[in-house]
């Protein structure tokens, strides 16, 4: 194994981690502020990707599509919050799981109704096409580097938003004491809608970015959703910092596992079998890591201090 390959795999892990962070940030924010567990977060990711693909096909511009994905996902999030989610805040997690499970069914089948059963086409914008040279003599796709950069920008913006703005103060207040913030005269219902729409927009943004790399199709949000849950549970639910570190951890472990495990097994069994066993173990790896972490730290690595 060369340095170039190791570096490339590390970047791949980082890029997966950044994508997961965009999903996980919204999830963990919504849980931290409203105490809501939202299984339909993956559907908002799908909404973002479909919006981007549709607008990009109409206008020929990926960038307009990206804006549309933010707008559509935020709008879908706000509508869902107003119609459904807002009735679930004082319910137990069980009701939230069921209601948002129902939302997945509605979103998935509704999207198929509107767009048909075939995957949509969405390509990377010309500006970000191609690969660039890396130290060590290898090449790396520019678009993936752009995703890493976009993720870093979003993470920093979220940090500023939460630590420096009025909205951020309210969000933090909402996280630590929900009754109190209402008593202080903040319109808590509007705050909740805004936070939910913000989380949805992040998911939609992730969906659009990834949609250009993958297949824009119904059900694309589900695998990401489960990974994002793994991330926030590892990181400590409600903690943005935990989500960031958890996402990077999961991204790197998953990528490295898929890359290295078959190589480890090749030392013991024939290559074809090593591929199968290594691959099987790699697909279970992050769940094993999650179980281990929770066994030692039942509230994740960075549980929010107040709760």
């Amino acid at each position: 194994m060369t340095f170039a390959l190791a570096l490339e795999q590390l970047l791949n892990g980082l890029q997966l981690g950044v994508m997961l962070f965009l999903m996980a940030a919204g999830l963990t924010l919504i849980f931290g502020v409203m105490g809501l567990i939202n299984l339909a977060h993956g559907s908002l990711y799908m909404v973002g990707a479909f919006a981007c693909a549709t607008v990009a096909a109409w206008t020929g511009s990926f960038w307009l599509g990206l804006i549309a994905s933010l707008a559509c996902a935020a709008a879908a999030g706000a509508i869902v919050e107003l119609l459904v989610i807002r009735r679930l805040y004082d319910r137990d997690h069980l009701d939230q799981v069921l209601a948002t499970f129902a939302l997945i069914l509605i979103f998935s089948e509704g999207t198929r109704w509107m767009f048909g059963s075939f995957p949509l086409y969405l390509d990377i914008p010309p500006l970000l096409q191609g690969a660039v040279a890396l130290p060590g003599g290898t090449q790396y796709p520019l678009y993936r580097l752009a995703i890493i950069a976009a993720g870093a920008v979003v993470a920093f913006a979220l940090y500023l938003l939460i630590s420096r703005t009025r909205l951020g103060i309210r969000i933090r207040a909402g996280e630590s004491d929900r009754e109190m913030i209402g008593a202080l005269g903040v319109d808590i219902r509007t705050l909740y809608t805004v936070v939910f729409a913000l989380g949805a927009a992040l998911a939609g943004f992730a969906g659009a970015m990834v949609g250009a790399l993958q297949s824009v199709q119904v059900g694309m949000g589900e695998p990401v959703l489960i990974l994002a849950f793994v991330v926030i549970v590892i990181g400590g639910i409600g903690s943005i910092k935990g989500a960031l570190l958890g996402a990077l951890l999961v991204g790197v472990i998953d990528t490295m596992g898929r890359f290295l495990l078959p190589k480890v097994f090749v030392l013991f069994v024939p290559p074809s079998q090593a591929g199968m066993i290594g691959g099987a173990l790699a697909s279970m790896l992050i769940y094993i890591v999650m179980a281990l972490i929770l066994a030692v730290k039942p509230r994740g690595l960075f549980p929010p201090a107040h709760a």
Binding site: M1, T2, A4, L5, E8, N12, T138, R144, S215, M220
Partner: peptide, 12 residues
């Protein structure tokens, strides 16, 4: 859905 790790192996 992501084949970055495999593509890196192809490259090498």
């Amino acid at each position: 859905t992501d084949y970055a790790a495999e593509i890196a192996q192809i490259r090498a």
